[in-house]
Design a binder for these strands. Structure first.
Lengths: 147, 147
DNA sequence: TATAAAGTTGATGATTTTAGTCAGGAATAG
DNA sequence: CTATTCCTGACTAAAATCATCAACTTTATA
């Protein structure tokens, strides 16, 4: 039940964009360095985010990537869906036809409940929430230097 | 974010045992047939369940496996933990030392929230619940033949 | 318009995990 | 003693994961 690096890296990328929002295109190179994601791997990670319409990109000098919508409009449920596909703990949840007895299967019901519980969490958190949480943690850290 | 067959098969095995509880040792061969799990694979699946103390086994003629506790006392959280290990969506949740900035990381907080949400679901469901749900679905199915 | 910068795409590869299979062994009932 | 049944370790094929690389396209700007 682990997310792949796609989901984890991708979420970090978008948090990074949310934190650097409004300053124009953000370089992949910079995101790579700040978030410790291999640049060449990062290049592949952004494809589904562009296809999903939550970031845009520009090539060439002064190029980079940026959020298309405001961070408050981007929910993690969407992000994870784009990067990982369905979050359901078993294929049969999303695609009942894979198993003849799907509708009679009580274990499938459990996996469905788990998916719903996860989706509630992801649905309730936006990039703005993440950015705010991050800033408030940073502030806390700075204050601690003066104690 | 998929469970492996270990978690899915294993849960079915235990549901099967809960349904056939009280009739003495249940043959792996029968579980294999009813739950459509390869026998040789099943033999490996039961090891962590025995080690975890929720089933016991006896070899030889009239052998088989059975639940050690009552189905009402066995929560799915325990089952999945034995079969899959931690259900956390990322290693850093269980083992913060893997990442220097774990305590400052807001994405890690999200993965932790997801884990908690899943655990609440799994904590709230016992094998008895599963068995009851199963029987009531079966009954519904029988009734439908007479409509 | 030449050039450097930066994202895009497709091919490839190393490593790990998954999902088994198989052979032989050990315990148990009768 | 013997048939039955679970146990264990070794092994394997296939898939997924996590990249890396090279060639290419687009863009800003000197």
């Amino acid at each position: 039940m682990k997310l792949s690096t796609r989901g984890r890296y991708g979420t970090k990328v978008l948090l990074d964009l949310a934190l650097y929002q409004g300053v124009g295109p953000v370089l992949l190179k910079d995101i790579s360095r700040r978030q410790r994601i291999p640049l060449h791997y990062l290049e592949h990670l952004i494809a589904p985010l562009i296809a999903g319409g939550i970031i845009r990109s520009s090539r060439g000098a002064k190029g980079g990537i940026w959020l298309v919508k405001s961070p408050a409009e981007i929910r993690l449920s969407k992000v994870i869906l784009l990067l990982e596909g369905s979050i359901a703990p078993a294929e049969c949840v999303t695609n009942p036809k894979l198993c003849e007895s799907a509708d009679a299967c009580v274990t499938r019901d459990v996996w469905l409940e788990m998916e719903n519980a996860m989706n509630e969490v992801l649905e309730s958190i936006t990039l703005q929430h993440l950015a705010e949480r991050h800033k408030s943690k940073e502030q806390l850290k700075e204050k601690m230097y003066y104690i």
